[in-house]
């Protein structure tokens, strides 16, 4: 296969995943959340149990007027949704789906790349918050910045723990080194990574930056139409990314009970959707944290736990 064809195929596959996986997760969220609340959720769009609801939503967003407030900083305001979406697209490039070459762009330091690029998302939040010329947006942006800065630390520390255990920064390498008993050994790191990841993509119960009962809709207040849809899409791609990272780092990625070589991609996808389900489940079950509780959880629970895990990992690595 010529290089350019392979490259095109890989990028097309990633774009395809980028466009379908978030929709599947979003539809699952609609349905799971509804049933957890004793409802049915969307039932009409598309005929069968409202499967096309998100497509209908997308069509609606496209038709809506694209409003930029008069007092807003136009170029920054318009650029922010794209900046919010792009990092997640880049992250999807390096997440291994299966063994061998089943990854769009194998990267020697994939883990580091992922953490660095996910961290860029906060710039988009600050851009949208400030450029909206709205005090609620600004407050949401400040909350988001404080939250993302704080939670990046436990996120990176817990990821560092598993990288240390595997002795590599490559995501495929980590999956290859993974063994079932790591589930026990790295459990605290997994919990910290997952919780910090939730906070990183601002999912409930960590959605103070958009807290609709306090801040209207936080930094997304002034957005309409397609740009707002971009922010929403970024949130759902974020779920996919965090679920995929948790899968790859802590749940053994493509390693399954049988047929790893051929069914690896299936195991990965199954695990990703299982984690995504937990993300939705947590959203339905827990109320939003208060701003001070959020910071307290981060600095007094997650950071010490992840530091302790680092020490434990280092000790076990040295002992083995």
């Amino acid at each position: 296969m010529p290089l350019w064809l392979e490259l095109t195929l890989r990028i097309a596959a990633v774009v395809g995943a980028f466009l379908t996986l978030p929709l599947i997760v979003g539809q699952t969220e609609h349905k799971v959340m509804a049933h957890m609340q004793g409802r049915l959720g969307p039932m009409y769009a598309g005929g069968f149990h409202g499967w096309a609801q998100l497509i209908a939503d997308g069509l609606k967003f496209v038709q809506k007027e694209d409003i930029t407030p008069r007092a807003a900083d136009r170029p920054v305001f318009r650029l922010a949704p794209v900046v919010a979406l792009l990092p997640y697209l880049l992250v999807l490039l390096v997440i291994p789906l299966g063994p061998g070459d089943l990854v769009a762009q194998p990267l020697d330091i994939g883990l580091f790349f992922v953490l660095a690029v996910v961290g860029v998302g906060v710039v988009a939040v600050l851009m949208s918050a400030w450029a909206s010329a709205n005090k609620y947006s600004l407050l949401g942006g400040l909350r988001a910045a404080a939250q993302l800065l704080g939670y990046e630390l436990p996120l990176v520390l817990s990821a560092a723990s598993v990288a240390m255990a595997a002795g590599t920064l490559s995501l495929s390498g980590i999956v290859e080194a993974w063994q079932p008993w790591w589930l026990l050994w790295q459990a605290p790191a997994m919990a910290v990574f997952f919780v910090a990841g939730l906070a990183e993509i601002r999912r409930p119960p960590f959605d103070m930056p958009v807290a609709d009962s306090e801040l209207v809709f936080g930094y997304m207040t002034e957005y309409t139409g397609l740009r707002f849809a971009f922010f929403l899409l970024a949130e759902y791609v974020g779920i996919v990314v965090i679920a995929a990272l948790t899968t790859v780092l802590f749940l053994g990625g493509w390693q399954g009970p049988f047929g790893d070589a051929h069914l690896g991609w299936l195991w990965t996808l199954l695990k990703v959707f299982a984690v995504a389900f937990v993300v939705i489940w947590l959203r339905v079950s827990y109320p939003r944290l208060r701003e001070d509780q959020l910071q307290r959880l981060c600095w007094l629970v997650l950071v010490p736990v992840s530091l302790g895990q680092l020490v434990l990992t280092a000790a076990v690595r040295v002992a083995l």
Binding site: H35, M36, Q37, G38, R39, L40, W281, V284, S285
Partner: peptide
């Protein structure tokens, strides 16, 4: 609670 509600038929 949420999991139990999910497996029960909906009230809608």
């Amino acid at each position: 609670v949420t999991l139990k509600t999910m497996v029960r038929p909906a009230q809608t």
